[in-house]
Amino acid sequence: MTRLTFVNLPIQSAAKTKAFYEALGFEFNPQFSSEDTLCMIVSETAYVMFLETDRFKGFVDKELADTRTTVAALLSFSCASKEEVVSTCEKAFELGARRYKEPDDHGFMLAWGFEDPDGHIVEPFWMNPEHLEA
């Protein structure tokens, strides 16, 4: 059985979040999206569910973290090349994302990151496939 992964994150505005991530090249599954919920496709088995705060609160019985002042998770996704990592982060910065760190280049791996409009930390990375096989 292939398992699907759904990461769920609270957001302020579905429209604003969709515009931001579409501009970065992501697509959304309309079957699982609505006015207050978005299903962003990361891969055939991985998705990010963005839910406006009131909708998200309906799934939990705890207070939500204020992602503008605290970090609850890091959302990392692989890229096909170092250039894709750089272009994704630079595009995010142009769209108003906060630069919270500099690129971290280990030779076999490059990671960078940005804070999206809702304060979530997103870290695109590239890892040399040959390094994984070693």
Results as ranks from 00 to 15, higher is better:
residue 53 T to W: 01
residue 57 K to W: 13
residue 72 A to M: 09
residue 72 A to N: 08
residue 100 Y to M: 10
residue 88 T to V: 14
residue 61 D to K: 15
residue 95 L to H: 09
residue 105 D to F: 00
residue 90 E to F: 10
residue 99 R to F: 04
residue 110 L to E: 00
residue 77 F to R: 06
residue 65 A to N: 14
residue 67 T to E: 03
residue 82 K to Y: 03
residue 81 S to H: 03
residue 92 A to D: 13
residue 84 E to L: 02
residue 81 S to E: 03
residue 96 G to A: 08
residue 111 A to N: 08
residue 86 V to C: 01
residue 77 F to A: 14
residue 107 G to N: 02
residue 106 H to W: 05
residue 89 C to D: 10
residue 64 L to D: 02
residue 79 C to V: 06
residue 57 K to M: 14
residue 103 P to L: 01
residue 71 V to P: 05
residue 99 R to A: 15
residue 84 E to R: 01
residue 104 D to R: 07
residue 96 G to W: 05
residue 111 A to L: 08
residue 73 A to Y: 10
residue 81 S to W: 02
residue 85 V to I: 09
residue 87 S to P: 05
residue 73 A to Q: 11
residue 66 D to W: 02
residue 111 A to D: 09
residue 75 L to H: 13
residue 90 E to A: 11
residue 70 T to A: 13
residue 68 R to A: 06
residue 53 T to K: 15
residue 71 V to W: 03
residue 97 A to W: 02
residue 91 K to L: 06
residue 74 L to C: 11
residue 71 V to Y: 06
residue 93 F to H: 09
residue 98 R to L: 14
residue 95 L to N: 07
residue 96 G to Q: 09
residue 90 E to S: 12
residue 91 K to Q: 13
residue 109 M to E: 07
residue 92 A to K: 04
residue 82 K to C: 06
residue 76 S to T: 05
residue 64 L to I: 10
residue 55 R to E: 15
residue 103 P to R: 05
residue 107 G to V: 03
